[in-house]
């Protein structure tokens, strides 16, 4: 577990450093994710690799990690109430249109690419 977590932290650290050095508008952990993906592909890691086991363990409880930031809602209950209509309706509609757009474009382009082959 510890050795797996060390790999995850190391990838994140390299990602964070790269982002800062290059001033790239990407979050460090996302660069770390790409880095780990390349490492896993190159090493052809299987499910018994320590980093894979640590990652599975962490991802099983991904929702837990959002709780501290989410509880911040208590500070903004007043704002949420005062601007309930624009917040709720804009959030819901924009979310739905975004969901439909991504799914629709993906399915349409997949068909197009599939036909080309």
């Amino acid at each position: 577990m510890i050795s797996g977590l060390t790999w995850l932290l190391a990838c994140q650290l390299v990602g964070e450093v790269l982002v800062r050095l290059t001033d790239a508008p990407v979050p460090g952990p996302v660069v770390g994710m790409v880095l780990l993906f390349v490492l896993l592909q190159v090493r052809r890691s299987g499910d018994d690799a320590t980093v894979v086991r640590a990652a599975d363990g962490l991802l099983r409880h991904l929702q837990l990690l959002f709780v501290p930031a989410g509880v911040g809602v208590v500070v903004y209950l007043g704002t949420l109430r005062d601007q309930a209509l624009p917040i709720a309706v804009a959030l819901l509609l924009s979310w739905l249109v975004g969901l439909a757009a991504v799914a629709g474009v993906t399915v349409a382009l997949e068909r197009l690419v599939g036909r080309g082959r």
Binding site: G28, G32, M33, L40, A54, A55, D56
Partner: peptide
Amino acid sequence: IAFWLGPATVALAVP
């Protein structure tokens, strides 16, 4: 707890 959000994002490389 919040600290682990970063490593968990890196972990998404596994799936």
